[in-house]
Write a protein that binds this DNA or RNA. Structure first.
Length: 479
RNA sequence: GGCCUCGUCGUCUAGCGGUUAGGACGUCUGGUUCUCAUCCAGAAAAUCGCGGGUUCGAUUCCCGCCGAGGUCACCA
């Protein structure tokens, strides 16, 4: 039997890093065995539905490369994949339960139920609706919710992550199957859909662990085979011990994309948060993840989200792509991340800039702050020059003298490339009898007025003779 | 309050009865005859939540406790 997994989000907003793992792991599991991952949109709560959320979810999965085999857009044999369009199927299953005496329409007014709940809360006792089950029920009809008629007993089951589980009858209750608006609850709909769609592994957050006995009761009452159950521990917020959520400022996955994080790094980081294959490998490609993934090595405790490590990984991936796939491959990813001033420059020039700066990038958006002086003359800031830690011991006259000497020597250079520039710079050191840190810092600042830059020979060769000399002259004149 | 889950360096983790408790991020130091970064080398950093057992020996097995989290919706 081949593996079928699913990612079944509610279209209530964007996918953030706290919940995207429940898409990644089903994908990895399905792919490693030539199985299928289904995308199913659980839109049964009309009140929480957010316009455009489905597209957001689709975009996120596509960006990460988590391609679903069945679902919206791609279709499939179990369509439709929106629960709101599957009402008939749920009602069909509901009628089966009614016929078997395992479901009843509950006319009890909401206020009454709230009262029961309040009683239980005050008595510090768990609220079980079955203790308040109405004596007389009515025919099921629109406007009246349908409840499961529980027959509480002990349940044993196996969770692929948590291990062997047991629950007593006290956890089972008369849960709502169909709401009064005719839509099914999650509790009911997902059971029906997973069975209809042939899902073999149900992966979801640990918060569903407590309601598992109710699901098992439903499988039994409906005479359905239990899928394998997989509980995923929470990802914790950087501070505190709560699970990471939008309230903690959990950014959407696509926000990281817009900030210059590579999909490879994101997938790599998230997959390895709370899972490892037992080796000391840190960098994984998607294919490597698929190969190495296994349910039994998913952590049982929650893992704290650490953006610093994500950014480190992203730097690793930026360098890896440049080194293994070439400068052009990385350049192709940089669209939209260049400073405004770069708009007037051609691809060839930007590619040169990228080639000498890429190993300093943590995110692609660092290009915006780190490369401005390659595209536009920097504002001269003599204060920055004179307060520099390598230059503060030099007088202004000395600095001016050094600049002039440098300009003269560099002007005489025939071939303007990195090698010749380096040789010339070395000659200048001897000629001026200065330490590299002094002379080079001066030239660097006059050229960039930035806190740092790539090696001087490279910077000057990319900048070109004209620009280099013009900037050195501009600073000399300003002294 | 009932039920359930979890507890190794600051963080992510390895470990599955005998280890100098390993790796990675972060931090600090040094090197790569120029800055920042990369890269390299090194350092600091975990009485393995606490207390009892079992055992010649427990981070590893058992019990209790404490702490943290989850759940008890016509939300998923």
């Amino acid at each position: 039997m081949s593996i079928v997994t699913r990612f079944a989000p509610s279209p209530t907003g964007y996918i953030h890093i706290g919940n995207v793992r429940s898409a990644i792991y089903p994908y990895l599991l399905a792919k490693q065995s030539d199985g299928k991952m289904i995308l199913r949109i659980e839109d049964t709560d009309r009140a929480r539905y957010v316009e455009g959320a489905t597209e957001l979810i689709e975009n996120t999965l596509e960006w990460l490369g988590l391609n679903w085999d069945e679902g919206p857009i791609v279709g499939g044999p179990h369509a439709p994949y929106f629960q709101s369009e599957r009402k008939d199927i749920y009602h069909q299953y509901a009628r089966k339960l009614i016929a078997a005496g395992r479901a009843y329409a509950d006319p009890t007014p909401a206020e009454k139920i709230d009262e029961y709940r309040k009683q239980c809360n005050e008595a510090k006792v768990p609220f079980l609706y079955r203790n308040f089950r109405p004596e007389h029920t009515v025919e099921w009809q629109p406007g009246i919710p349908l409840r499961f008629k529980s027959e509480p007993k002990e349940y044993d089951w196996h969770d692929e992550v948590m291990g062997d589980m047991h629950a007593g009858p006290e956890t089972e209750d008369d849960i709502i199957l169909i709401k009064k608006d005719g839509y099914p609850t999650y509790n009911f709909a997902h059971i029906v859909d997973d069975a209809e769609m042939g899902v073999t592994h149900v992966m979801r957050g640990v918060e569903y662990l407590s309601s598992t006995p109710n699901y098992l009761a439903l499988y039994d009452a409906l005479n359905l085979a239990r899928p394998k159950l997989v509980s995923l521990p929470h990802i914790l917020a950087p501070q505190g011990n709560k699970k990471l959520g939008k309230r903690d400022g959990a950014k959407s996955v696509t926000e990281y994309r817009d900030d210059g994080v590579l999909a490879e790094a994101m997938l790599n980081y998230l997959a390895c948060l709370g899972w490892n294959d037992g080796t000391e490998q840190e960098i994984y490609t998607k294919d490597e993840l698929i190969k190495a993934f296994s349910l039994d090595r998913i952590q049982t405790s929650g893992a704290r989200y650490d953006e610093t490590k994500l950014l480190w990984l992203n730097g690793q991936w930026i360098r890896r792509i440049f080194d293994e796939q070439g400068a052009e491959a990385l350049y192709a990813r940089t669209t939209g991340f260049w400073p405004e001033a770069a708009a007037n420059h051609d691809d060839a020039y930007k590619l040169q800039v990228l080639s000498i700066i890429y190993d300093r990038l943590k995110t692609l958006s660092d290009l915006r702050t780190m490369t401005n002086y390659f595209f536009i003359d920097p504002e001269i800031d003599l204060e920055m020059l004179t307060s520099n830690k390598f230059l503060k011991n030099l007088s202004e006259a000395e600095i001016e003298e050094l600049l002039k000497t440098s300009i003269t020597t560099l002007s005489a250079l025939d071939t303007w490339d990195a090698d010749h520039l380096q040789a010339t710079l070395n000659n200048l050191l001897i000629e001026t009898n200065k330490k590299p840190a002094e002379l080079f810092s001066l030239i660097r600042l006059a050229l960039s007025y930035a806190p740092f830059s790539p090696a001087l020979d490279l910077t000057m060769s990319v900048l070109g003779r004209e620009t280099t000399l013009a900037r050195l002259n501009a600073t000399a004149r300003a002294m």
